[in-house]
Amino acid sequence: MKIAVCIKRVPVMDRRFTIAPGGTTIDEVGLAYDVNDFDLWAVEAALRLKEQVGTGEVVVLSLGPDVVQEQIRKALSMGADRGIHLQAASVGADDLPVARALADALRDGGYDGIFLGRLAVDRANGVTGPVIAELLGLPCVTAVSKLEIANGRGRAQRELEGAQEIVEFPLPAVITVDQGLNTERLPTLKGIMGAKKKPLEVRPVTLDAPRVTVRRLALPPERIGGRIIGEGVGAVPELVRLLHDEAKVL
């Protein structure tokens, strides 16, 4: 079982974000970065599959500047076997060139499965997986919350609004992982030590010119604190008046 997992370096979301001068990028000062949560679950799914089968290889790919090697090392410290860094100085807002570069790197890899997260928490486009599948001509199963793989076939559960869908598909396939599939393991200290010795291949890539560009970024409006008008039934007329005149929702 040979599985590739594509992972993305994203800012940790519990910070306060500000917009950098210029108005089209986030100010990176004070931000911390980690592997996208959904991608960690994809790594975990790949590791469990390899452990279940007993043999195989988990290869982790990440595209971006040199700092993404930190995220590749994290996946290696969790237990992935080797990493491929697709080196690109900057990555724009267009996902197609990214998916194309990943697809090119994956095409002749002989992978039984290509795993990704359902979306990256920074841009939340959720298209990289499906586009890779399209470019490689592979079946694509998105938002997987349960996964079984045996005898060259897969069976997955997808979460829909208020329903579940069970699908079957042949391998190789592209799978994007949703919340709930698993909880990722913590890297052990031995894993962290061992990750240093695992192969990490750097391949410079040239991305196609982006056709989507960011024009303007805006923060959501500040939430204004609540107001207490009064208590009990006596407060209702004033509440109705405010909802009608001020909030204009009635």
């Binding site: 913590l186 052990t188 200290l189 031995k190 962290i192 030590m193």
Partner: peptide, 27 residues
Amino acid sequence: AELGLLGVPWPESMGGAGLDLVSYLIV
């Protein structure tokens, strides 16, 4: 024990994590 926090600075040949003193202090 599973995470390797009980043998941080000892060599891997002795079953430790083979990390340095700073790593141990971080733990």
